[in-house]
Design a binder for these strands. Structure first.
Length: 257
DNA sequence: TAAAAGGAAGATATTACGTCA
DNA sequence: TGTGACGTAATATCTTCCTTT
């Protein structure tokens, strides 16, 4: 699968049809996601303490053992979650074996990954945002985690990346909207001025330069007033006669009588 | 060859826990 | 010391893609 995070700017939230809108934006310069998501040092420093408990061992690890059979299934390619159910009222979960976490000896606990574990995961994520089963197993083994934990970390990491990207895209579109609104205002004003000019002195108007023509590039929809190439560099009709170019006269058609 | 069924994997929504101000 | 906000691990469910029949 194409890594969507690498696609520059795309607003679509669906997985396979995210090419409906592609805009040149600051995001194209590939934001430094790792900088955006880097965990503040001061936050990490407190993590290993955790009241002196090695979160990867007890009692969390003990509770996680309850899902061990599930993990082994997963290694064979099966997923755990569709077979488990959750009672919404108490958060008491029953596994496919019919044993709730509480019956297993503990409610849902969550561990904090150590600084080193997080760093390794981050490094791995830099290389590839998804894990194949082999990579998952290797990474889990390296970090002394369950494969499911590595998988979950990557899932959440992808979600965070996408959320951040969406925020950036949203900001960019806001700015686009503001710019277009301003441009529209300016053009409206220009139209009014030209209309007034035409009314007041038709002779001066007749000697003005011909209207500028904007070219709409069909591939990227950028607009250019260059007669041979669009802003994106795609050749215009004169050099590429097969391109479905659409010249846009920007000055309103004013009858010259 | 098209269609239905089923599974795998990722995306998304939500919950729950730990930390900090 | 209690509490609310926040980050994030974990879970549940949905969606998409691919393979098989």
């Amino acid at each position: 699968m194409v890594e969507k995070e690498d696609l520059g700017l795309s607003l679509s939230l669906s997985s396979s049809t995210n090419n409906w809108l592609n805009l040149t934006s600051p995001a194209q310069s590939q934001p430094q996601w790792n900088a955006l998501f880097s965990v503040p040092e001061n936050r990490l420093q407190g993590l290993p303490k955790l009241r002196g408990i090695d979160v990867n061992r007890t009692p969390v690890a003990t509770a996680l053992v309850a899902t061990e059979s599930c993990e082994s299934d997963e290694e064979a390619g099966a997923s755990c979650s569709p077979n488990s159910t959750l009672s919404k009222d108490g958060g008491s979960r029953k596994t496919e074996r019919g044993i709730s976490d509480e019956e297993d000896g503990g409610s849902r606990k969550k561990l904090r990954l150590s600084k080193d574990q997080a760093a390794v995961l981050e490094e791995s994520f830099k290389e590839h945002s998804t894990l194949n089963p082999k990579q998952k197993a290797a990474l889990a083994k390296k970090l002394n985690l369950k494969p499911r934990q590595a998988e979950v970390w990557f899932q959440n990491r992808r979600a965070r990346t996408k959320l951040k990207q969406t925020e950036v895209d949203c900001e960019f579109l806001k700015r686009c909207c503001e710019n277009l609104t301003e441009e529209n205002r300016r053009l409206q004003k220009e139209v009014q001025e030209l209309r007034a000019l035409k009314l007041l002195s038709p002779q001066v108007y007749m000697h003005m330069a011909p209207p500028t023509t904007l070219i709409l590039c069909p591939s990227c929809e950028c607009v250019s007033n260059n007669s041979t190439t669009s802003a994106c560099g795609v050749a215009s009709p004169s050099s590429a006669p097969n391109m479905p170019w659409a010249p846009i006269p920007i000055r309103p058609a004013i009858q010259r009588s």
